[in-house]
């Protein structure tokens, strides 16, 4: 059997498994008919979308099967930081003293999913929005800029996120 054919089959099975988990969460029932219907349709959707969901060249093991328990912890950390960020935002709305700047920096993450999640996490936390993500180069708008030096800015903005994501996806 050809290697590419094997890899294609593995991709289809993984995609339909992910879709199946979503279906079970959404219906909330383990009846036989519901499971059969979900399995059939997730296989059908997986046949259509497997090449978008998992790219052919992205074959690292951790990019397909990340550490699930670390993701759960990461979501709670993120939620806590979002609340902190929103309180800071409310204070800066009240006072009105802002100092917005644009900063550029790079990230060390390899996997595409990890990079997108890093960009989304940056968009969600203290006064920063990702304007552009080109390969590993991020352009970030920062509301209360403390420095314009790229290295210090990256360590202040990325902070813990990059460490967590490297643990999850590598």
């Amino acid at each position: 059997m050809n290697v590419f054919l094997k890899w294609k089959i593995v991709r289809i099975i993984l995609t339909s498994l992910y879709l199946m988990v979503g279906w079970i969460l959404f219906t909330g029932s383990l009846a036989l008919f519901s499971l059969f219907l979900g399995g059939m349709f997730s296989f059908l959707v997986a046949l259509l979308t497997y090449s978008i969901f998992i790219e052919e060249k992205e074959a690292a093991r951790r990019s397909l099967l990340p550490h699930i328990y670390l993701i759960v912890i990461y979501i709670f950390v993120l939620l806590f930081k979002i609340y902190l960020a929103s309180f800071k935002m409310v204070f800066s709305v009240m006072k009105g003293n802002i100092n917005p700047r644009i900063v550029h920096f790079r990230t060390r993450l390899k996997s595409d999913v990890a990079r997108v999640i890093l960009a989304n996490s940056i968009s969600l936390t203290p006064g920063t929005i990702t304007l552009d993500l080109d390969e590993d180069h991020l352009i970030v708008h920062w509301l209360n800029a403390k420095t314009t030096h790229s290295h210090f800015a990256s360590s202040l903005i990325k902070g813990h996120f990059e460490m967590w994501l490297r643990k999850i996806w590598i």
Binding site: P100, I129, H141
Partner: peptide
């Protein structure tokens, strides 16, 4: 914040963050 801040980026900051929370 959407009404008070000066330009598009800062307004985006206020609206997106607070609406998410």
């Amino acid at each position: 914040g959407l009404l008070r801040f000066p330009d598009i980026y800062t307004r985006l900051q206020a609206s997106s963050k607070c609406s998410t929370t």
